[in-house]
Amino acid sequence: MSIQHFRVALIPFFAAFCLPVFAHPETLVKVKDAEDQLGARVGYIELDLNSGKILESFRPEERFPMMSTFKVLLCGAVLSRVDAGQEQLGRRIHYSQNDLVEYSPVTEKHLTDGMTVRELCSAAITMSDNTAANLLLTTIGGPKELTAFLHNMGDHVTRLDRWEPELNEAIPNDERDTTMPAAMATTLRKLLTGELLTLASRQQLIDWMEADKVAGPLLRSALPAGWFIADKSGAGERGSRGIIAALGPDGKPSRIVVIYTTGSQATMDERNRQIAEIGASLIKHW
């Protein structure tokens, strides 16, 4: 067993022997301040990774656009098919120029040779490549099948209805392509620590998230040296922004954090800054 596999296998073990965790309302004060600064709703939840206990939450059962955070769930569904012998990570998928959609920095470079399922998941999570996500959605049967996968996990809230990039439209009061912070946090925890996926697939999923290259201005910008984070960000229309993450000190994750916002007129930089400040408060009061 590799060191990384050992780390993920012992996530519940280490967490069980940690000192009790206590909620700190100071972080919620910052979440509410972010709402004021952005002029928009902000949803927040913080779960203990081992027990699933909610440590703090704000608007945990209000719907927010998922945006690209759905790509972690998508690759979880792909990995479940791999575990069941219905898919192979090494299978190569070929596609054409007509398949390319807006923001496809990886797939646009491989029109000639195609990409493997493993490479597509890596591109979808680490670079948020939209064509990679659409190609992977095709392998599982489309958005409705991802929703069905989530329902089978016990998540009857999260739903995907459309493809990239239309799913980022974020129309107010439109339930399409949305989740709730509580539902997303619980589902992410199941994917990373539950028995739904094999140990190898859980490790692969967290490795992809740990290698995320496009979430630097968010929670990662607030992390002290030595902290662990595996995350996936999302951005959408109407001032929408979000991030889902597993993080913790001492090089291992111990909490799940989900943050979503929508309806702001603020710039992307300002949305990023507010999420980073929430992260800084979380870490300060850990």
Rank of each mutant, 00 (worst) to 15 (best):
M184V: 05
A276R: 09
R41T: 14
K71F: 00
A34C: 08
A230E: 00
D33L: 07
E145W: 13
A123R: 02
R81D: 08
L146C: 12
M67N: 15
R81P: 01
A132L: 00
Y103M: 11
D48V: 04
T262M: 07
H94V: 04
P105I: 12
L137E: 11
D177W: 00
T112C: 11
P217N: 12
Q97K: 13
K284A: 13
D113G: 04
A123T: 11
V72Q: 01
V82H: 07
H156Q: 11
I125T: 08
L73E: 03
I283H: 14
L100I: 09
V258H: 00
K32Q: 14
D207M: 07
D174N: 06
R241P: 01
T116K: 09
T138K: 15
I275F: 15
Q204H: 09
R273E: 07
S254R: 12
M209Q: 03
V29R: 11
L73N: 09
A222L: 14
F58R: 12
T262I: 03
G216L: 12
E108C: 15
T178Y: 02
P25I: 15
S80K: 03
A246D: 04
K252F: 14
G114M: 12
W227Y: 11
V258W: 01
H94Q: 06
R255I: 08
E61R: 12
T27D: 08
S221A: 11
A182R: 11
I283N: 09
A124Y: 01
R271M: 14
T116R: 05
L73H: 04
L55I: 09
C75S: 07
D36I: 11
G194E: 07
P60N: 13
A84C: 14
D207P: 02
T27M: 05
G242D: 00
E102V: 07
T126D: 05
W163C: 11
V82N: 10
T27W: 02
E169D: 04
S264L: 08
R189N: 14
R41Y: 13
C121Q: 02
M180E: 14
A225E: 08
S128R: 00
P172T: 08
I256G: 03
T187V: 11
R241I: 12
D155R: 00
A280M: 11
A77M: 12
S68P: 00
E87C: 05
G236K: 00
I140A: 12
A133I: 01
I275L: 15
V214N: 13
I171Q: 15
S104K: 03
T131C: 07
L135P: 01
D174Y: 03
A211P: 13
E164R: 00
A77F: 05
A222P: 12
H151E: 04
Q88I: 12
Y103H: 06
S233P: 05
I244M: 07
Q274K: 09
I278Y: 01
A40L: 04
Y103L: 07
T126K: 09
E87T: 14
T262F: 06
L247R: 00
E145G: 11
W227F: 07
S104R: 14
P60A: 11
A266W: 04
P253C: 04
I206Q: 04
L191D: 00
I125D: 01
E175W: 11
I259G: 01
R59L: 03
L135R: 11
A222W: 08
L199E: 06
E164P: 00
N98W: 11
P172F: 10
E277P: 02
D269V: 10
D250C: 05
D231Q: 15
M180V: 12
E195L: 03
H94D: 05
L120E: 02
L223Y: 03
Q97G: 11
N173D: 08
G194R: 15
L47R: 06
E210N: 12
T262H: 05
Q37C: 09
Y44A: 03
L79I: 11
L160H: 12
S68V: 01
P60G: 07
D113Q: 04
G39S: 13
L218I: 04
H285T: 10
F58M: 11
R91G: 08
I229E: 02
L219I: 10
R189V: 07
T267D: 09
T147P: 05
T179H: 00
I125R: 01
G236H: 03
K213D: 03
T107A: 12
M67T: 14
H110V: 11
T107E: 01
H151M: 07
L79N: 02
L199P: 08
K32Y: 09
I256C: 04
N272Q: 09
M127F: 14
D250Q: 04
M153D: 04
H24T: 10
I45G: 09
G142A: 05
Q37E: 05
G154C: 04
E102C: 06
R255H: 10
E277Y: 13
R92S: 08
Q204K: 07
T198Y: 10
S201K: 15
S233N: 01
D155V: 01
I244E: 01
F149Y: 12
L146A: 06
L167D: 01
A123C: 09
E61I: 06
G239K: 02
G141M: 04
R59A: 10
A280R: 13
L196H: 12
G141A: 08
A133N: 02
M184L: 06
R241V: 15
L205G: 00
A246C: 09
E145Y: 07
P249I: 11
E277G: 12
A235P: 02
M66W: 01
P165M: 12
E108F: 15
L146M: 03
V101E: 14
V257S: 09
E102A: 11
D269G: 14
W227E: 00
A34W: 03
R238H: 14
A266G: 06
T27K: 15
W208K: 01
E56Y: 09
D250T: 04
R81K: 06
E195H: 14
T138A: 12
H156R: 10
G85M: 10
V117I: 14
L160N: 04
S264R: 08
A133T: 06
G114I: 02
A182C: 12
E56W: 03
T107Q: 02
A211I: 13
I283M: 14
